[in-house]
Simulated scan of single mutants.
Amino acid sequence: MKALVILVAIAMTPAWAEDWPDPSWPVDDATVDWQAVDAYAFPERNTTDRSGIRTDALLIIRDGRILHERYAAPTTANTAHLTWSVSKSVLATVLGVAQGEGRFQLEDPAARFYPPMQAHSHVRLADLLHWASGLAWQEDYEYAPLKSSVVAMLYTRGRDDMAAYTAAHASAHKPGEHFLYSSGDSNLLAAALRGMLDGAHYDSYPWQALFTPLGIDSAVWERDGNGTFVGSSYLYMSARDLARIGLLMQREGRWLDRQLLPASWVAFNRRPFTRAEALPGEANPGGHWWLNQPLQGQPLPWPDAPAGTFAALGHWGQALYIVPERKLVIVRYADDRDGSYSHNALLKRVLAALPREGT
Score class of each variant (00 low, 15 high):
Ala110Gln: 05
Arg112Gly: 07
Met117Gln: 02
His120Gln: 10
His122Asp: 15
Val123Lys: 03
Leu125Met: 13
Leu125Tyr: 08
Gly134Cys: 11
Leu135Ala: 06
Ala136Trp: 07
Ala136Tyr: 08
Ala136Cys: 13
Glu139Ala: 09
Glu139Ile: 05
Asp140Glu: 14
Asp140Ser: 14
Glu142His: 03
Glu142Asp: 14
Pro145Val: 10
Leu146Tyr: 12
Lys147Leu: 15
Ser148Met: 10
Ser148Ala: 12
Val150Trp: 06
Leu154Ser: 04
Gly158Met: 01
Asp161Glu: 04
Ala163Leu: 00
Thr166Ile: 02
Thr166Met: 04
Lys174Asn: 10
Gly176Met: 10
Glu177Tyr: 07
His178Trp: 14
Tyr181His: 10
Ser183Pro: 00
Asp185Arg: 03
Asp185Gln: 03
Ser186Trp: 00
Leu189Pro: 01
Ala191Arg: 00
Ala191Val: 00
Arg194Asn: 11
Arg194Ala: 14
Asp198Phe: 08
Ser204Asn: 12
Pro206Phe: 11
Trp207His: 14
Gln208Val: 09
Gln208Ser: 14
Ala209Arg: 03
Phe211Glu: 06
Thr212Glu: 13
Leu214Gly: 06
Ile216Asn: 06
Arg223Phe: 10
Asp224Gly: 01
Gly227Phe: 07
Thr228Gly: 03
Gly231Phe: 02
Gly231His: 03
Ser238Asn: 06
Ala239Gln: 09
Arg240Met: 01
